[in-house]
Design a protein around this nucleic acid. Structure first.
Lengths: 211, 211
DNA sequence: AGGTTAAATTGAACAATGTTCATGTGAGTA
DNA sequence: TACTCACATGAACATTGTTCAATTTAACCT
């Protein structure tokens, strides 16, 4: 009965505002960090009352979590767009794309990885699952490169490798620390993969004859 | 005139309370996470007023930062205790010790890496420096293992390697995610180092003939 | 010892911010 | 048009970081 094209005026306003709230919250997190996100600011910018924010998202964590959910979705989309013909290039591409995405949306990524729920409420399972799935994107190229390894080992390796890349990038982009210049960070990631893939017995891109 | 053995009654009380406040704050962070740390709780447990906490630490961030400072000091101490006769073993030892320390004090480490100052105040430089120094502890064994590499490259490599290990461990211990069993995590780190050192042309521990 | 002073302590008041809920409003419906 | 109910509202409340005028207290002086 109620499909998207034919929804009531109420539902239209509601869903438009929902999107607006998310856009504003995302903008604030991206620009000034999660700690600067305030209910009243969001409500005022969205032209509604604080009650409406609560009505739509339950509590303030609900807003944050929804933004985080969309962040990991966008990340997954970007990573899924990395060409997969050549498995070695795909691994380098995944790392480089993660670096790009992280550099573009550092505060959103930090919100995703650093936000803690209040009390001891559990972090939503679907978000965790999406993060795990993103980190598992190295699985398929690794399977092609290491055909003799068993699948569980590859799954673990995929997660290890991606976690390592994540560590290099997230600390490298931490402007609090002595900031690594972005260009150097890219090189750092590449060299890291060079060495690690070589150690796995895989010939890295840099060592191959051109074309 | 005022040395440590001969300090005024006032200073004695003050420094005793300072230690007490830190101990309590550390305990709360370690047990329930940074988000559960509240000024009033700390003051009450320390048997003083909230004003005294402010008098001693300036603001609440001051308490957190002091705890973080002591965390990185303790970490550095532990890492500095890793035997250094054999540079390869030292690298494995540093990673294993970091894992141990992180597992024992997960919430304290998260406080160190995830705490953001309010507004845009800068993170204290001395803490950043100490973290960098800790991450540079792989430098000296790497120099011995790669005598031909130039020093800047080694410094970068040290940071990259330690950041990678940090990523593997911090995500691996993230109980929010599908928690990796601690024993498996240890193996994961070891295998990671095996592959990476091999890729650098270093013979890993596992591949050497015993003794 | 007693008085004086400077500094630390206190906790009530304030400020900022997340959360709730009684009340009002307007879209849907008969 | 009248009715109704789900949603929007924002004032009030709850929690927590921060300030500061009044109080207490240790240190110093004579």
């Amino acid at each position: 009965m109620n499909n998207v094209q034919d929804e009531s005026l109420r539902d239209q306003k509601k869903s438009r505002r929902r999107l607006q709230i998310l856009e504003i919250a995302r903008g604030i997190i991206a620009a000034k960090g999660l700690r600067s996100l305030k209910v009243r600011d969001v409500a005022q910018s969205a032209g509604c009352s604080v009650g409406s924010v609560y009505n739509e998202f339950g509590d303030f964590d609900g807003v944050i979590l929804t933004v985080n959910r969309e962040t990991v979705q966008a990340l997954t989309l970007r990573l899924a767009g990395v060409p997969g013909e050549d498995p070695v290039r795909q691994l380098y591409g995944l790392a480089a794309t993660y670096l790009e995405f992280f550099a573009e949306h550092a505060n959103l990524l930090r919100s995703l990885f650093e936000h803690r729920m209040e009390d001891d409420r559990p972090y939503p399972d679907d978000i965790l699952q999406m993060v795990m799935n993103a980190f598992a994107l190295m699985h398929s190229p690794l399977v092609r490169l290491l055909p003799d390894a068993d699948d569980v080992k590859i799954a673990l390796l995929s997660r290890t490798l991606f976690s390592a890349v994540h560590g290099i990038i997230s600390l490298g982009l931490e402007e609090r620390m002595v900031a690594v210049p972005p260009q150097m960070l890219r090189q750092q990631v590449t060299q890291f993969l060079d060495a690690h893939l070589a150690g796995l017995g895989i010939v890295p891109v840099g060592a191959r004859s051109p074309r």
